[in-house]
Amino acid sequence: MFCAIPPPERSEAMTKQLALVIDLNTCVGCHACGAICKSWNTSGQFGPLTDHNPYGKDVTGVWFNRIQTYEVGEYPDVEVVHFPKSCMHCVDAPCVPVCPTNATYKREEDGIVLVNYNDCIGCKYCSWACPYGCREFDHHDGVMKKCTLCVDRIYDQTLPEDERVPACVLACPARARSFGDINDPESEVSRAIRDKMGYKLMPETGANPANHYLPRRKTHVALDLDQVTVKKQKAIIVTRKSAQEGETLIEDFGIGG
């Protein structure tokens, strides 16, 4: 399954593959998507996501969407990256073929990977086979659970049309999450992947995840001082070194004048 070169993109342009695209550049790490996911799914059609010891010590429970936070770089060149992760609805989902009972399956019509709770025997094999750790065992129900891509929302005709998207997409205050068909080149998600360099996690595992992430972006202005023709203007530069030392060393000098 491991190969140095990622497998070629499938020519599946015709089939639908719904997915989430998560923008790490705008995600603020508020955990709203995780909380609404829990709230929607625990009160949804498929039964609650069980919590154990909810008001006691060592509380633990089933969540479909967890957010980690990482520090990238070293002070002072450091960025904090919040990283929400739910099932990637992989195109070549490794969790599907391993399931002995066929409880885990990938829907042909839209590519959503689901678990049939009535068939799952709780062997946990799929959770070992998922490279992303996106499956959660419900010890109370004894079955494996995971993000459903809100399949009970996105086709619900009783909801207003603009609300037929996953709960986490609606909830995100930073609009870091978008939802759509990544195989439709004109969809919002496909455009975002194209324009903002969307990428997949762990391409080397060959799982070919459908969810994509958009990287942090920085705007660099390449300015050559010789080309600046503005006259009699003052530029104020606070050097990083001085700010670090707590001094306010301000150099001001004129350009071109």
Binding site: Q68, T69, E71, G73
Partner: peptide, 8 residues
């Protein structure tokens, strides 16, 4: 240099 800060 990437360091985990929060498991969430």
């Amino acid at each position: 240099k990437i360091r985990l800060m929060e498991t969430g």
